[in-house]
Amino acid sequence: MKAAVLTFPGSNCDEDLLWAVKEIARQEATLVPATTTTLAGYDLVLVPGGFSYGDYLRSGAIAKFAPVMTALKTFAANGGYVLGICNGFQILTEAGLLPGALQWNTSLTFVCEPEPLIVANATTAFSNQYTAGQKLSLPIAHGEGNYYADDETLAAIEANDQVVFRYAANPNGSLNDIAGLTNAAGNVMGMMPHPERAVEALLGSTDGLGVFDSLITATKGAAHVAD
C-alpha cells in the first residue's frame, strides 16, 4: 500500500500518521504538502488531524481552498481511498466529500479521553478487520466533533449503511452517536477518534490497528508486520 499523508500548515497529527503507517503498519507513506496538485500513484490519501491554517474561521473552512483539494476530489472521484481523521474529517465535510458537518461539542470545551466505540459496519474498506458490534477504545481529542446532518441526509446515511463507528457513550452530542462514516460510494471515510494514537501497546491500546489493516486488505497490500 502506498499512502499520501497530506500536510496543511497547522496540521499536527501528520507525523503521527506517517509513523503509524510506516513504522507500525510497515507500508509506504509520504508527507504531501497542501500545495501539491496531483495525487496520482497513491492507493490511499490520509487527511490528518490538527488545526489547518489555525482553524480560525471554522475548522477546515480555509483548508478546503488549498490546491491539493482539487487533486483530492479527482482522486476520490476515481475511486481512491481517502481517510480523514479529526481535523481531516472536518476538512472532508467542508469540502463536500462527506455529508454533514461538525459543530462545537455540546460541552463547548475541547475534550481528550479514551472513548468507547462500537463498530457499526465491518464491511467497509476501513473496517473489514473488525466485526460488527465489536467494542473498541480509541482516543478522541477535539473541540468540534459534534456530527450534524439534516434529517433527510441522516436517513440516507443510515439507509445506505454509511456509519462505520458509533460512540458507546456520546461525548460531544453527535447525531445518531456517529463517530465515523463513509460517503455513499464507500471509498471516503471521516472519523473523529484517532486510530493512529492506538497502534502500540506501549502507548496503551492497539485498537486502532484494524483501520490500517483493513485498508491494507482493501488495497491488497501485504499484511502489516507486527512490531
Binding site: C13, E15, D16, C112, P139, H194, V199, E200, L203
Partner: peptide
C-alpha cells in the same frame, strides 16, 4: 485537564 490534548505526537505512555 481533559481539555488538553495529552497524546498528540504519539509518544505519551
Amino acid at each position: 485537564f481533559q481539555q488538553y490534548d495529552a497524546q498528540v505526537q504519539t509518544n505519551t505512555v
